[in-house]
Amino acid sequence: MTRFIERHPAWALIVIIAVAVALWLIFAVWPPGLEEAVGRKRVFLNAVFNGITLGGLYFLVASGFTLIFGLMRNVNLAHGSLYLFGGYVGYAISASTGSWVLSFIVAFVLTALVGVLLQVLVFRRMEGQDLRQTMVTIGLSIVFADLMLWACGGDFYQIQTPNWLIGPIELPLLTAVKSSGEPVYLRYPLVRLVIFLASVAIGIAMWLALNRTRIGMIIRAGVDDRDILAATGVRIQVVFVLVFALGAGLAGIAGVVGGTFQSLSPGEDIRFLLASLVVVIVGGMGSIPGAALGALIIGLAEQLGSVYIPTYAIVVTFLIMVLVLALRPQGLLARR
């Protein structure tokens, strides 16, 4: 941090000012002139919160994607299918048992299992052939999409939010002060906050597992140089299977999350594949903190865009991607 300030004093100043402005926008009561110019504070705060929570969902999908890529150099274009599969499994479980939490567990286990099968039956057979693996994953994603369409139909499904999560909660953030002097606080859907906190928890757990455990050390070593790692006697194939299972399972969990606060239908697989591609391109292929940063940026851009420039909202995401590719093609937080 201090090194960054020493090296780029001008950039550091800009970042500090931007953070200060953002904090002021979030915590202060807006003067009437500002409300007139850009709209009510409630709308702005909601858009920011929605962007952050949507970023949480994107992070769940993209972290698995980036983990698999980082270790195996395998661009798994069937990742979106795993997301949708997890969502459908979650729906089936929550509809039959009524338990929301159980649906996460089952979705994680089953999608992880599919991930294991994919790695063992398909990708192990074409190790090191990046292009071939990528082509195969495209083919698989089409097959999966049609199979799921056949099994579940074109209907859209929604996973029932448990009763204790329905409805908004009041946050200690001022949105306005009424003429009587009574403060108005932000009301925000509880379920989105819970899901966001859960994804932060998963992110931290992943970071800890990667940086503080032996298996994490092996995975990090594999990301850097998997041939040397294999030469040291580590059973690299087992590590591959494990990572693939974890990445797929995370996509499955994300499917349940997406099915809860949005909905599941054919085509969602492609949408989330595209979202996670954009996220990891912005954040840096193979980097978990990069996926977190990318997810946050894309989520915020989508939500703020949909409120303040609705006509061009879709373009904003890709504009960010183009800018990153032009200025820092390896991604914002990539190491190399």
Binding site: G39, N46, A47, L54, F261, Q262, E302, Q303
Partner: peptide, 11 residues
């Protein structure tokens, strides 16, 4: 094809 209406609802 909008999926996330949260900001629209807030507005």
């Amino acid at each position: 094809g909008t999926k996330d209406f949260a900001s629209v609802i807030a507005a």
